[in-house]
Design a protein around this nucleic acid. Structure first.
Lengths: 241, 241
DNA sequence: GTATGTGAATGGGTTCACAGCC
DNA sequence: GGCTGTGAACCCATTCACATAC
């Protein structure tokens, strides 16, 4: 099943597509469900059989979401469960993978092989079949030429040319703040249209390029705000009404 | 980026008296505005004066959002601009900081000092005045006892006791998947009510604990899905300014 | 004239509740 | 009996447009 999502950005709305578009928020959660499903098949399956099927309630619990929300999310893939029973684990996994388009191979380039860059390179979920890490760049002459795994670090000045040659689809920016915009510019010049930015600033890119930000500081601050609003630890939340 | 488990359903509602509740989505963007504002004061200010004031349009452009959205967001802080002029940079900075409660000091503990953990420890925005990195833990006997900066790595078995003693408010989980749930359990046992999780799985915690997930794999997959939906690079790379 | 602040309108996402199927 | 799938209601969030203030 090839699910196609409508253009999110342009004002060309009101285009009742043949296939329903998958909402933004649902896409984000589908990746979570996939994580949970993958973990499921790896499980010893406990006392029972290898748990060939799972209910929306159980899957929702493991994914940390509301069961109704989960069912609604999965409904965008078309009917993929069995009423009165649940979802077939391998079948559902396949359906979600298909919706997310895991068959597409998107070569990744990493700009910045400092602490963070090296950590990312070794991170589980990176360097998979879908996202082969294909090029490394750094501006530090001491790092250029070094090998990490089977890749050699190249100078950041070569980003545009090399990425274009290798057909890089996704660029990961893991350089210090001061170098981040230049790195993004180089990726854009190379025709990269998807960027994952770990530097704590907002990259300026053309509309045709999508950027996702991962910002530790922001995450901490959001946690902090909720922290002080929560009731002190210890007692049930129902304490004060 | 943000999957949050736990009780967030009515946001900031529990405080009828003080400021109006700030919507979830707005809080996330306030941290971005703060980033942009901080970058502004550090700027040489170009040909003009040190730019003591800034318009919603300019600030929105730098933050990558719609001007109307930005004004609506700021309106939750109460009137803080000057009509016909714009926002005073230092005044606005103070207002946003106040809304985010940057005066609250929340000690942070880091569980897992592998590649990722070390990268995080050195990350800008970590180890600030608001979020002092106060304890390090790892399960690897080779790492226990090592010093990073002015901290000594302790065994992960000591998490509960040490975190409680130090009054740790936020725990960061940067261990491999297999060890993540145990790490979270230890943090929860220590009374930590806010967790930032970098392991690619959904942590199971009580409702009284909030978790934010940062998952590289999920980010890549979301990028990937949008990637294939976008039109191939066709339009001119119009100036980003 | 210019730019903020904000009700009102619009759109998207979540939750509910129940119909439909096993 | 149990569980999925989904319209409908509800709620949050974005955008619009203009009154308001400088």
């Amino acid at each position: 099943v090839t699910v196609q999502v409508g253009d999110v950005r342009d004002g060309v709305r009101s285009r009742p597509n043949s296939t329903r578009p998958i909402p933004e928020a649902t896409v984000a959660r589908l990746t979570v469900y996939l994580r949970v499903l993958d973990a499921l098949v790896g499980e010893p399956a406990g006392p029972t059989l290898p748990a060939t099927t799972i209910s929306s309630g159980e899957l929702a619990r493991r994914a940390g979401v509301n069961p109704a929300k989960l069912r609604k999310d999965l409904s965008f893939l078309g009917p993929c469960g069995i009423r009165g029973v649940g979802y077939d684990v391998v079948g559902l996994t396949a359906a979600v993978e298909s919706a997310l388009g895991v068959d597409r191979v998107l070569p990744v380039a990493l700009v910045g092989v400092g602490n963070l860059g090296q950590a990312l390179a070794g991170y589980a979920g990176f360097h998979t079949r879908q996202f082969p890490l294909t090029a490394l760049f750094d501006s530090d002459p001491a790092k250029v030429g070094c090998r990490f795994g089977d890749l050699v670090v190249q100078d950041v000045g070569a980003v545009a040319e090399v990425c274009r040659q290798l057909g890089i689809a996704i660029g990961v920016v893991a350089v210090p703040v001061v170098a981040a915009q230049a790195a993004a510019d180089a990726l854009v010049a190379a025709g990269v249209r998807s960027v994952l930015n770990f530097a704590p600033l907002v990259l300026q890119v053309p509309d045709s390029v999508q950027v996702r930000r991962v910002d530790l500081g922001s995450e901490l601050q959001v946690l902090a705000l909720h922290h002080q609003e929560r009731p002190a630890a210890g007692e049930p939340v129902s304490a004060r009404r």
